[in-house]
Amino acid sequence: MKIKFIPKKSFLILLGAAVVVSLGLSSYRLVSRWGEAAFLLGKAFSFGYSDPKSADFVAIFDGKSLEGWEYDPTYWKVSDGAIHGETTAENPLKANTFIIWKGGELGDFELKMDYWISETGNSGVQYRSDRFTEVPYALRGYQADIDGGNRYTGQNYEERKRTTLAYRGQKTRITSQPDSISNLRDFVARNAWQGLNLVEDLGDRAELGSLIKSGDWNSIHIVAKGNILKHYVNGTLMSEVHDEDQKNRMMKGLMGMQMHVGPPMTIKFKNIQLKKL
């Protein structure tokens, strides 16, 4: 058998090409493996990491039923994934009614939800409340106010108790009535608690109101920690109460959403998320 020798120059060219190809393949494999490792590491971190702002929030409305809620079925139902409250001229309210969460009393917590309200609507998110037993499905206590005209949305109004504790755009300090006054209503003037002390303006009331969309969905966020109560709408702080009234304040209680007496109205709530602090 005759062996055919490859010229030296050609051999060197072929050898160089083989080395380049080999190095290229090795580099590709290395880069590929590093890329794969980085991808897997990223996946691992993504599964193990959660945004602290959203961690521990739990849905308390499943979007399908009102299981876990107490309510008057004459006025409340589920529609298009939302809790739907409605009154009509033929089916008016005689007293404010609430859909009440049956999960127990809340102390320190954060609560987020989206709401939609008709132009004539009057509503709110009730919290740290007790039952007003004279009326079925009724609560009394702190309320993050909501209304279709956006005159009051975001303020802190205490239903059936001390009335307005902070208007929209206010940070307030709440003090007790004098010992000589035992009836709460005797220390209320023009639908506001006389122990409302303005600490700071959070912003112009009208300008803050312009951040709330009429005839559309908005988000509300309540933070209750100790005696400090904050109401946010669409991510903006609308009111803040420091309740130093040890005679009348509530440090825990029931939570629910209101439908107010008045003209026919519709109120909807969805994406209801709770975090206990």
Score class of each variant (00 low, 15 high):
F61I: 05
A44P: 04
K53Y: 04
R33M: 06
S46L: 15
S32I: 11
G48Y: 08
K64C: 00
F39M: 09
S46C: 09
G24Q: 00
A55I: 06
L25H: 01
E36Q: 08
S50C: 14
G24T: 01
S26I: 13
S26N: 09
S46G: 10
K43I: 07
D56F: 05
K53M: 02
D56N: 06
Y49F: 15
F47M: 15
F39N: 11
S32M: 06
F47V: 15
F61S: 03
L25C: 04
S26Y: 11
P52S: 01
S32T: 06
R29I: 09
R29W: 03
D51S: 00
F47R: 15
F39T: 07
Y28L: 11
P52I: 00
F45Y: 15
E36V: 12
D62F: 09
F61R: 04
S54V: 00
K53I: 00
Y28V: 13
S32C: 07
L41R: 07
G42H: 04
S54Y: 09
F47P: 05
V31L: 12
K53V: 03
G24Y: 02
K64N: 09
S50N: 09
D62C: 08
Y28F: 12
L40K: 09
V31N: 00
V58A: 11
F45R: 14
G48D: 13
D62E: 07
G24V: 00
S54D: 05
F57D: 08
S27K: 03
P52F: 03
G42E: 02
K43A: 13
D62R: 06
D51V: 01
F47G: 10
Y28D: 06
L40M: 10
K53W: 00
S27V: 02
S50M: 15
S32A: 14
V58K: 11
G24I: 02
D56Y: 04
L30W: 13
D51E: 03
I60C: 05
Y49G: 12
A37W: 04
D56M: 02
D56Q: 00
A37G: 01
G63T: 14
W34V: 14
S27G: 02
A37E: 12
D62P: 07
L25W: 00
W34A: 11
G48Q: 10
Y49I: 15
L40H: 05
G63R: 10
L23E: 01
Y49S: 15
W34F: 12
K64V: 11
F61C: 03
K43V: 14
K53G: 04
W34M: 13
F61L: 06
L40I: 12
S27F: 07
A37Q: 12
P52N: 02
F61H: 02
K64P: 06
K43C: 03
K53R: 05
K53A: 11
L25Y: 08
G35E: 07
V58G: 10
A55K: 08
D56V: 00
L23Y: 01
L40R: 13
Y28A: 11
S26W: 07
S46N: 13
F61D: 01
G24K: 02
V31E: 08
L23R: 02
S46V: 09
G48L: 15
A55G: 03
E36G: 01
A55M: 11
D51K: 00
R29P: 02
K43L: 10
